[in-house]
Design a protein around this nucleic acid. Structure first.
Lengths: 186, 186
DNA sequence: TATTGTTATACTCTATAACTATA
DNA sequence: TATAGTTATAGAGTATAACAATA
C-alpha cells in the first residue's frame, strides 16, 4: 500500500543520471506520493461510500461548486473529457438519480445538468467530512509552514510552465547502475 | 486544463464548513493540483511516447527499479491491483514485446516477469528525460526550501496516519453558502 | 489447505467517427 | 458553417468468482 512511508532515492542517483538532481527527485517523488495518499485517505472514502468513480464524483463536485446548473460541455471542459465521454458519465449519474437533464431555456441545442435533491444532500453530507479530514491531516503544520509550502508549490508551477514553453531538451544518457542489495525474488 | 494556475478557496470557506481550516484546504488542494500537473508534464509525455497506460508503464518502472525479474504477484502488490488485473496487464505488455513470462526455477506455481531488451532500452532512454525535467521544474527551490518542503510532507503523512488510526470523526454540518458572483451559465 | 496464476464475465471510462438538431 | 449532444463501436483497466496446478 502507499503505506504512508517516504519515498527514498538511491545515494548514487546522480551518478546514474548525470545532470539530474537527487533532491529535486526526492521532492517530486514525495510530492506525488503524498498527494496520492491524501486523496486515498480523504476523497476516496466518501466517493466510494456514494459508489461513484472519480470522474462521476467530480461531476457532482463541479456542479455543487458552480452553485447553478451547467451545460454538458462546460462540465466536459472542466473534467478534460470529450463530449461523448460526458454523455456516458451523465447517463451513469442520471441512472442513479443524481442528475437531471433539462432543456436550456433559450438555446435548444444545449441541455442543463441539475443536481437532484438526493445528490445535493449527498454532497452536503460528504463535503464536511472531506474538509474536516483535511484540517486534521494538516494539523501539524504551522501557518508559517503552510505559507512556505504554498510558496514552494508556486515555484514548482513556474518551473513547469518554463518547461512546457521550451523545446524538449536533451539529457545525458543513463549510466549503468551499481548492483544493489535488493530483496531476493519472492 | 490544469493550466498551472493556483487553486483558490473562497474567503467565507470557514463559515460554510464550520471547524474546517481554509489554509489547510488551500495546502491540500494545491498539493494535489501541483502533483497532477507535475505528472502531466513529466511522466505523461514519455509514457505516451511509448504508448502505454499508467499501470502498464508502472510495471516497467517497477521491474527496472527492482533490477531483477519479479513474480506477477510481487508486481501486483506494488501496483495495488488484483492478480486477475495483473494477468491482463501482463498480456498487454507481452503482446507488445515488452515483457516475457518465464517459469520460476524452483516454485512451479510462479512465473518470473522479465523486461525484454527493447523494454530496457526504452526505459533507459525515457528515464533521463523524466529526471532531467524534474530537475528543471524544481530549479527555483533552494536546497533549504527542498528540505523544508520534505519536512512538511512528512508532517502531512503523520497527520494522515493519525487520521487512519482513529474512528471516523463527526463533523459539523455545512452551512448554506452565500451567493457568489459566479459566471453565468454558458 | 493455501498460494499463484488464468479464464470467464461484466462494468466503467475513454476515445474516434458519424450523425441529428439547432444556431 | 459551427456548435451541442447522442449513438455506435472499440479498447483498456478493473473487479469478482470459479478454476487448475502446485506447494
Amino acid at each position: 500500500m502507499g503505506d504512508l512511508s517516504a519515498v527514498d532515492v538511491p545515494a548514487d542517483f546522480e551518478r546514474e543520471f548525470p545532470g539530474a538532481s537527487r533532491s529535486a527527485t526526492l521532492v517530486a517523488a514525495n510530492l506525488v506520493r503524498t498527494a496520492t495518499d491524501l486523496l486515498a485517505a480523504i476523497e476516496r472514502p466518501p466517493r466510494e461510500a456514494v459508489g461513484l468513480s472519480v470522474s462521476a464524483f467530480q461531476v457532482l463536485v463541479v456542479l455543487d461548486g458552480a452553485g447553478e446548473p451547467l451545460t454538458g460541455q462546460a462540465i466536459a471542459e472542466e473534467l478534460l473529457v470529450t463530449s461523448a465521454s460526458m454523455t456516458s458519465l451523465l447517463d451513469t449519474l442520471q441512472r442513479r438519480g443524481l442528475v437531471e437533464r433539462r432543456p436550456h431555456p433559450t438555446d435548444r441545442r444545449k441541455i442543463l445538468i441539475h443536481l437532484t435533491e438526493q445528490a445535493q444532500r449527498t454532497v452536503d453530507l460528504q463535503l464536511p467530512a472531506v474538509h474536516g479530514s483535511i484540517t486534521q491531516a494538516m494539523a501539524d503544520l504551522t501557518e508559517a509552514e503552510r505559507e512556505q509550502f504554498l510558496d514552494s508549490l508556486t515555484k514548482m508551477r513556474a518551473g513547469l510552465t518554463r518547461l512546457a514553453a521550451q523545446p524538449t531538451p536533451t539529457f545525458k544518457a543513463r549510466r549503468k547502475r551499481r548492483a544493489r542489495p535488493g530483496p531476493t525474488t519472492a
